[in-house]
Design a protein around this nucleic acid. Structure first.
Lengths: 223, 223
DNA sequence: TATGAAATACATGTCGGACGATCTTGGTGA
DNA sequence: TCACCAAGATCGTCCGACATGTATTTCATA
């Protein structure tokens, strides 16, 4: 009698994990919100153990913070944390872009980059926050995959870009067209195989993004 | 009756976690070795839940790999993985060194750097593998702490430097004195407040380390 | 003797319940 | 008003059970 689990490909913790990340993007969860284990157990219909495992994975990635004997909370970045994160992302994305450029001629890399990029440039996609966010994530993920540095791939998801995105979604951070141009510059440098140039372009993009966030009012940040 | 847990500062999972990392350095565990949950439960006298949590933390940091329905295994790096890791460390350590240099004049930073560095330079410490490993970890940790980028601090431990160290312990990788000189160069640049220089020195050190590892025989790697 | 499939052993994935520890909150008395 | 204590909320941890999947051994058969 399998009244018990109908194991997903990734298992129960994965269900919870993805459910929360997805809920974040959909606005079901917002930064600062508490995540009580018992509630999640009920909502996702899994054991508390699985919930706890999902939470600790999220905590490891910095998406939630777990305070001892107090419920987990969706993390809300302070000004300093955002600055730190952006500085780190500048370095990492620069590295990723450089690697991708250096390996653009191997296997199906070029095609993959161009395919995901073309989705990103689709006018219809750009108009839908959710679809665009997904397309952008895919593009970045492809960039990392093409770079083929497994350790970087292991580390990247643990930089809470998702959090950044969600936290500042309400604010029109960068002027749309400028952002698109940034992506194009990165893409062009990569397919051109120009490592140095790709690195610079990626870094510049992140820096611009950081600058625009600096200008936001305090209300956009935590404590 | 508290026959139950005598909660450590960090809790049962922490005990297991530290026990394993420590066991790694002490040679109790070696790369490739299987970690059976039941055994760990017995050895550390904690519940299986705690063991599992410790294992997933270790897996998140890349120290062990967990295959579905098969026991966890202490990770053994292949040549490619080592190359990838070294390349990433070069970027990250360079970043850390630069930040540290830029902030050397704030608070007690200078003193902290010099203190931990002097331990590293102690002749007696250098002769003891375990003590030296600890001193080096402390120095790097201090460097990151001084740099004061919280996100970097969050990411760094997740780069399995420990694994690198242990896996190649048997081989005399770099000539001792050269290595010491590298550290000195990094230190000097940092206390000098020369960000660029510190970054270059740190990167150069990692690259030299990587080069020396490239020369090792296949037996030192997995698959 | 070689071989392939079934039976078995082993270990993990997940659930549910239980209980102590600790933080928060709200009420109570000086 | 304020220190203090009781109650509630939640987490940290342990235990036992069973399903699920992998590895190994056994054994009938060619």
């Amino acid at each position: 009698m399998t009244k018990h689990q109908a194991v997903q490909a990734d298992g129960s913790p994965g269900v919870v994990y993805r459910g929360i990340v997805d809920g974040l993007y959909r606005g079901r969860y917002v930064p600062g919100q508490r995540l009580v284990e018992a509630d999640l157990t009920r909502d996702f219909e899994v054991g508390r153990g699985s919930v706890r495992e999902a939470l600790s994975r999220l905590a490891a990635e910095g998406l939630v913070t777990m305070n001892l004997h107090r419920s987990a909370v969706i993390r809300q970045l302070s000004r300093t944390e955002v600055r730190d994160l952006v500085a780190l992302l500048e370095v990492l994305n620069g590295f990723a872009a450089r690697l991708a450029a250096e390996r653009i001629d191997e296997g199906a890399n070029r095609k993959q980059i161009e395919d995901t990029f073309s989705v990103l440039m689709d006018g219809e996609v750009q108009r839908d926050f959710l679809r665009f966010a997904r397309a952008r994530n895919t593009f970045y993920r492809t960039m990392v995959a093409v770079g083929a540095n497994h350790e970087l791939a292991r580390i990247m998801p643990r930089t809470n870009v998702d959090l950044l995105r969600v936290q500042f979604r309400a604010y029109q951070t960068v002027d749309e067209s400028a952002r698109i141009e940034d992506y194009r510059a990165i893409h062009d440098a990569i397919v051109e195989g120009a490592g140095r140039k790709a690195e610079t372009a990626a870094k510049a993009h992140i820096r611009r993004f950081g600058d625009s966030i600096e200008k936001l009012p305090d209300a956009a940040f935590s404590g």
